[in-house]
């Protein structure tokens, strides 16, 4: 067996207890980032389609700033910003930064799916005497949500990988641990290869689960 496989395997065997813990942290960051991002995204998507010029302007400013600046800058900015007013662990500062970042992208996903629903659906609903709120919550949004699932899943995978950036504020997730391992062992190549494998396997598992879920939705509707 080539030398490199042996050393990578050695590094893997030596480090997996620590990496399993770091994986849990990465998954927690991802989960919080996505859930918070979904809540924020939904609120801003509704603001964008609200018809109120002020709400639309607020949503547009938020989306423009978030999409126009690097995530790593947002993490630093939020971390040092939050610490100024409220003492918070770096884990939570990082998770919130991921959520705020995701919110902008998820808002656009929701807005696109809501506006992509055939206007005839809205008309049919209103012609039956349903008001705007009922039409949105019972007819338009459930259909939009189904359409949002593939892009949301994609965003989920992006978040998983982006969560590596919170290493910059010292959260002990996968990348951060790999970075330390590389420095301590003088085996940077093997260490980062192991890091890459962890992310790759996680993404593959998510992709598989997502496909199962999408297929299930298709079956439900057929």
């Amino acid at each position: 067996m080539p030398e490199i496989f042996v050393t990578v395997f050695d590094v893997f065997m030596r480090t997996y207890p620590g990496f399993l813990e770091a994986t849990v942290v990465t998954l927690q960051l991802t989960a919080i980032g996505v859930i918070l991002g979904t809540v924020i995204g939904l609120i801003f998507a509704l603001m964008k389609i609200s018809g109120s010029k002020i709400l639309q302007a607020i949503a547009n400013i938020y989306i423009t700033i978030i999409r126009g600046t690097p995530l790593i800058v947002q993490i630093m900015f939020l971390y040092f910003g939050i610490v100024e007013i409220y003492t918070m662990s770096n884990f939570w500062a990082g998770a919130i930064a991921l959520g705020v970042h995701n919110g902008a992208y998820i808002a656009e996903i929701f807005r696109g799916s809501i506006q992509g629903i055939d206007p005839g659906q809205r008309e049919a609903s209103m012609s039956l005497g349903m008001d705007r709120r009922q039409t949105m919550s019972r007819i338009v949004f459930p259909q939009a949500l189904r359409r949002s699932i593939p892009p949301l899943g994609n965003q989920f995978i992006i978040t998983l990988k982006d969560s590596s950036l919170v290493y910059i504020i010292g959260v002990a997730e996968i990348f951060s641990l790999g970075n330390r391992e590389a420095a301590q062992s003088y085996q940077p190549f093997e260490s980062f290869l192991v890091v890459a494998l962890y992310y790759l396997v996680l993404v593959m598992i998510f992709t598989f689960l997502l496909r199962l879920y999408e297929n299930k939705l298709d079956v439900d509707r057929a």
Binding site: D118, G120, Q121, E123, A124, S125, M126, S127, L128, G129, M130, R138, I139, P142, Q143, R146, R221
Partner: peptide, 26 residues
């Protein structure tokens, strides 16, 4: 609107609901 029924050229049934659910929704 609830007192004036409307039938559309393109049906506009709710695709995420069954036939019966479409009828009883309103």
């Amino acid at each position: 609107r609830a007192e004036v029924g409307m039938v559309f050229q393109h049906f506009n049934l709710f695709p995420h609901k069954t036939v019966l659910e479409n009828v009883i929704e309103a």
